[in-house]
Design a protein around this nucleic acid. Structure first.
Length: 415
RNA sequence: GGAGGGUUGGCUGAGUGGUUAAAAGCGAGGGAUUGCUAAUCCCUUGAGUCCUAAUAAGGCUCGCACAGGUUCAAAUCCUGUACCCUCCGCCA
C-alpha cells in the first residue's frame, strides 16, 4: 500500500511504476474516489460538528431537530462508506514503486545477471537428472506421491528424507548463529495476512489454497505469517531491526502453471522452507544494506553446499507488486542444463507495513511505518534437485555435501 | 462441539447513556532547574481531514477488538463476527 498523499503528489511516478510492473490501475477512478472521499469527509465532519454542538435536550422540539440532523448525517455516512470501500479496494491494486536502480523490463528476459559463483561441472559420463538418480536410489517416489496426494505429489525417502531435514536444520542453525531469531510459523493464516503481504489481491485466484470449512488460507511462504507477526503493533526503534529465521511448510496452487516444470520435484504444491524475514526502520538506505545482508546469507549457504549459482537483479516486469528491489538466486541444475530459482530476496519498503499497520516509535517520538524484507534461506525439495544432480557420480551414486555429512551419517548415497 | 468470563491509548488500568478531558499511573520524547549524578517541576506522546511551503501552529471530526443497530446523545444499551481466558467433551 502506498500513501494516497504520495500518490497524489507523485502521480506520474506511480503510473510509470505500474506500467513497468505490467499492472493495470484505474488511476482516474482512484483519484475520483479520493476526491469524493475527502469531500464527503468534510461534509460529514461539518454535520457531526453541528450535532456535537447541539445542547442537551429533553424537549420534543429538540429531539425533532436532532432527528433531522441525524437523517442528514446518515445519508452522507452511507455514501461515504461506499466511497471508502471503493477507494480501499482500488488502493490495494496499486503496486509499489521500484527503486531507480531496478532494470526496466517486460518479463524475465529483462533480468540482469549480476554475479555468478562456482564452476559449472563438466562430466565425462552421461549425466542423469534428479529423478533418474532418485528413482534408481529409491529416494523420491512420484508415482505413489500422485496416487496419494494427486498431481505434483511426492514422497521423499531414505537419504532424501534425511537430506531434507539436514538442509533445513543446517540453514536454520546458520542464521541463528548470525543472530536471527528462530521461529516456526503457522502456514494456516487469515485473509488479512495475505492482503497485508501483498499476495492479495493479485495472487488471490492462482497462488493460494483456501480452506473450505474455515476462513483460512494455506500460505505459500513463512513471509506471510512472520511479516504479519507484528501487525497492528507499535514497536520501539531501539528494538529494530527484528531479524527472523522462520520455518514453515509452504503450499502453492500453481494454477496457471499446468504443464510447466512437470518433471520431478522442481515445482510442487507442498514443500518446506526456511525463510529470512526482517522488520526494520523506515530508512531506505538501511534497508538496502539489510537486503545485501540477506543476499550474502543465502549465498553463504549455497557456497557451503558448494553449489554453483548466479544472482539476478530482477527487472520491473518480473518482480512482483510489493517490491522495491528484488534479487533471485538461481542454482545450477545439470539436469535442466540451466540455473533454476532457489531463492528470492526482496525489499518492500513500507508497502507491507502500511497494509499490516506495523509501526514504530522513533527516538524523537514520531510514529513511522516499518520496512520489511525477506529472502529464502533454503527451500526443500527444490534444492535437492541441485544437490542430487551436481553431486552425482558415474556409477549413479551421490556424494553428500561435506557440511551435511554429519547429519546423514555417510559420505556416499548408493544402494 | 458445549458452558461461562473477557477485549479501553506504546504499556498497566479507571470509567456502565449526557458534551472542555478516555481518570490515574508507567514508559517514551522535549523543556526548566541543577557543580556532576540523583531528585523535582512543566509540556508533548492515536488516526483522518481542512488550512499551509511544512512531517510548524491551528480548526473540525473520528477513535474504547471489528462491523452494524437503538437514541436528540453510546466506551457505556442491543445484534453479529473475530480473538483471548476458565471449565466440560473429543483428540495428536
Amino acid at each position: 500500500m502506498l500513501d494516497i498523499k504520495f500518490i497524489r503528489e507523485n502521480l506520474e511516478l506511480c503510473k510509470t511504476a505500474a506500467v513497468n510492473k505490467n499492472r493495470v490501475v484505474d488511476w482516474a477512478q482512484l483519484l475520483e474516489c479520493d476526491d469524493k472521499r475527502r469531500d464527503l469527509i468534510g461534509k460529514t465532519d461539518a454535520i457531526r460538528a453541528q450535532r456535537n454542538n447541539t445542547e442537551k435536550t429533553t424537549s420534543e422540539e429538540g429531539r425533532q431537530a436532532g432527528r433531522a440532523v441525524k437523517q442528514e448525517l446518515k445519508v452522507l455516512e452511507d455514501e461515504l462508506r461506499k466511497v471508502e470501500e471503493d477507494f480501499n479496494s482500488l488502493m490495494l491494486t496499486v503496486p509499489n514503486v521500484p527503486d531507480k536502480s531496478v532494470p526496466i523490463g517486460k518479463d524475465e528476459h529483462g533480468n540482469v545477471q549480476i554475479k555468478t559463483w562456482g564452476k559449472i561441472p563438466e562430466w565425462d559420463f552421461p549425466i542423469k537428472d534428479h529423478m533418474a538418480l532418485a528413482t534408481a536410489l529409491d529416494l523420491i517416489d512420484l508415482e505413489r506421491g500422485a496416487k496419494v496426494a494427486g498431481s505434483r505429489g511426492y514422497f521423499l525417502k531414505n537419504e532424501a528424507a534425511q537430506l531434507e531435514f539436514a538442509i533445513l536444520f543446517f540453514a536454520f542453525q546458520k542464521l541463528i548463529n548470525k543472530g536471527y531469531t528462530p521461529i516456526t510459523a503457522p502456514t494456516l493464516v487469515k485473509e488479512f495476512a495475505l492482503y497485508g503481504n501483498g499476495e492479495f489481491p493479485w495472487g488471490r485466484d492462482t497462488n493460494v489454497y483456501k480452506l473450505e470449512n474455515a476462513d483460512n488460507y494455506l500460505s505459500g511462504t513463512a513471509e506471510v505469517p512472520v511479516t504479519a507477526y507484528y501487525s497492528n503493533e507499535v514497536l520501539n526503534e531501539k528494538d529494530l531491526p527484528k531479524k527472523f529465521v522462520a520455518f514453515s511448510p509452504c503450499f502453492r496452487r500453481e494454477a496457471g502453471s499446468y504443464g510447466k516444470d512437470t518433471k520431478g520435484v522442481y515445482r510442487i504444491h507442498q514443500f518446506n522452507k526456511i525463510e529470512q524475514v526482517i522488520i526494520s526502520k523506515n530508512d531506505m538506505n538501511n534497508s538496502f544494506t539489510l537486503h545485501e545482508e540477506l543476499l550474502a546469507n543465502a549465498e553463504e549457504i549455497l557456497q557451503d553446499l558448494e553449489l554453483p549459482y548466479r544472482v539476478l537483479f530482477m527487472c520491473t516486469g518480473d518482480m512482483g507488486e510489493p517490491q522495491v528491489k528484488k534479487y533471485d538466486i538461481e542454482t545450477w541444475m545439470p539436469g535442466r542444463e540451466a540455473y533454476g530459482e532457489t531463492m528470492s530476496n526482496s525489499v518492500m519498503g513500507d508497502f507491507q507495513a502500511r497494509r499490516l499497520k506495523i509501526r514504530y516509535k522513533t527516538k524523537d517520538g514520531k510514529t513511522l511505518f516499518c520496512h520489511t524484507l525477506n529472502n529464502t534461506a533454503i527451500a526443500s525439495p527444490r534444492i535437492l534437485v541441485a544437490i542430487l544432480e551436481n553431486y552425482q557420480q558415474k556409477d549413479g551414486s551421490i556424494r553428500v555435501p561435506k557440511v551435511l555429512v554429519p547429519f546423514i551419517g555417510k559420505e556416499i548415497i548408493h544402494r
